[in-house]
Amino acid sequence: MLVTDNDRDILARTLWGEARGESLSGQIAVAWTIRNRVNDGKNRSWWGEGYVGVCQAKYQFSCWNKTDPNYQFLIGVKKIPFRELAQCRIAADQVIDGKVPDPTGGATHYYATRIKSPAWASKAKQTLKLGGHVFFKDVP
């Protein structure tokens, strides 16, 4: 699959919106979850096609919801702090380029620990807890 500069930018912005308070390792884990969705041929109609399609698919990553406070930053109306976005770009590039292994064990889902555990998590296999996120695969 051809990965464009736009794919890299949208993935980095998604990492900022979803995991900017995390360490580089935490951002890499979130990026791998997105990459696992990109590479999962079974659910493309739900998750979207490619990095842009997966990141911006409805009901997938709340930071892209028009009502989310992060949205104005993601679309460029407000400026993301340079250093924060730079770290997200490093994580995005490392994952897209395959320079780091998948720490999530194939996760396709995660949730932030600051929210109540979603219903789907009780029926899925937890693969990793890192920073403020819990990662899962085999989500029904």
Rank of each mutant, 00 (worst) to 15 (best):
L2N: 15
V3F: 06
T4L: 13
N6K: 15
N6S: 15
N6V: 15
N6C: 07
L11N: 09
R20P: 12
E22S: 00
S23E: 07
G26K: 00
A29Y: 09
V30H: 11
V30T: 08
A31S: 09
W32A: 07
N36Q: 07
R37G: 01
K42R: 15
N43F: 05
G50S: 04
G53W: 14
Q56K: 14
K58I: 06
Y59C: 13
Q60W: 08
C63G: 09
N65E: 10
T67R: 14
D68G: 05
P69I: 00
Y71C: 02
Y71V: 04
Y71T: 08
L74D: 11
V77M: 08
V77Y: 14
K79H: 07
I80E: 07
E84T: 06
A86S: 07
R89P: 07
R89C: 13
R89M: 04
I90R: 12
A91E: 11
A92W: 05
A92E: 09
I96S: 09
D97Q: 11
D97A: 01
G98F: 04
D102R: 03
P103W: 13
P103I: 01
P103R: 02
H109A: 09
H109M: 00
Y110V: 04
Y111P: 04
R114A: 03
I115K: 01
K116P: 06
P118R: 04
P118A: 05
A119H: 08
K123V: 14
K125T: 11
Q126I: 13
T127E: 06
G132I: 13
G132K: 10
H133F: 14
F136H: 07
K137W: 01
D138F: 10
D138Y: 02
V139F: 00
P140N: 03
